[in-house]
Amino acid sequence: MARTVVSLTAVAGIAAGTLAGAGVAAAQAAPAQQTQPATASVFDGDVTTLAVNNLGLTVAEAKKLQRWLKKFHGYTGAIDGQLGTNSWKAMQRFLKKYWNYNDKIDGIVGPNTIKALQRYLKAHRGYTGAIDGIAGPGTKAAFKRMANAV
């Protein structure tokens, strides 16, 4: 119990930026990331963060994609416009079935997920870049076209 209280106090302090400037130092030292924490749950002193990675989609575009994933690829989560682990697991199932995704269905948007997505986008959504596993501007623009077409 004491460990949970200390952990929660530390998390709250860091979030507020009050623990000896930890928030400021971390912000200056850390590079910008594409993923961001969506929710955190505390159970038995452990904190788990669920990542959201919309790859440049607006909430409305991500909701369109989630509806499509729900209809065709087994997505069972909320239609909330936040592409988190469950959204990406459904996307990975789609990519595995049709676009040679050959990694774990884990909901992590890693290079193999991006490569399979790029294969789909190249075939159907005007992506002209390399199949390199990097979600650059061309990949994001084509992903946006995908979300608006489904």
Rank of each mutant, 00 (worst) to 15 (best):
T48A: 08
R93T: 10
L117E: 04
T58I: 04
T58W: 09
W99C: 10
K70V: 12
G110N: 06
G77N: 02
G84Q: 05
T128V: 06
K122S: 09
L57K: 09
L50E: 14
A90H: 06
L65D: 02
K63P: 13
E61A: 13
A123W: 04
Y98Q: 09
S87N: 12
Y101A: 08
A10Q: 10
E61F: 05
G136N: 03
A130D: 13
Q66I: 15
R119L: 00
E61N: 06
G74H: 09
V5N: 14
R119K: 14
L95S: 01
G138I: 08
G21L: 06
K144S: 15
A20V: 02
K70S: 11
N54Y: 10
A20Q: 12
A51P: 00
Y98T: 04
N100F: 05
A141Y: 08
K104R: 14
M91N: 08
L83F: 07
N86G: 11
G13K: 01
A16E: 01
A141H: 05
T113Q: 00
E61K: 09
T139N: 02
K96E: 06
G110R: 06
D46H: 06
W99I: 01
F43E: 12
A141R: 06
H73D: 07
T18H: 10
N86D: 05
P111K: 15
G17M: 00
I105C: 11
V5E: 14
S41V: 03
A135N: 00
V11A: 10
V5I: 13
L83I: 07
G110E: 03
A22N: 03
R119I: 02
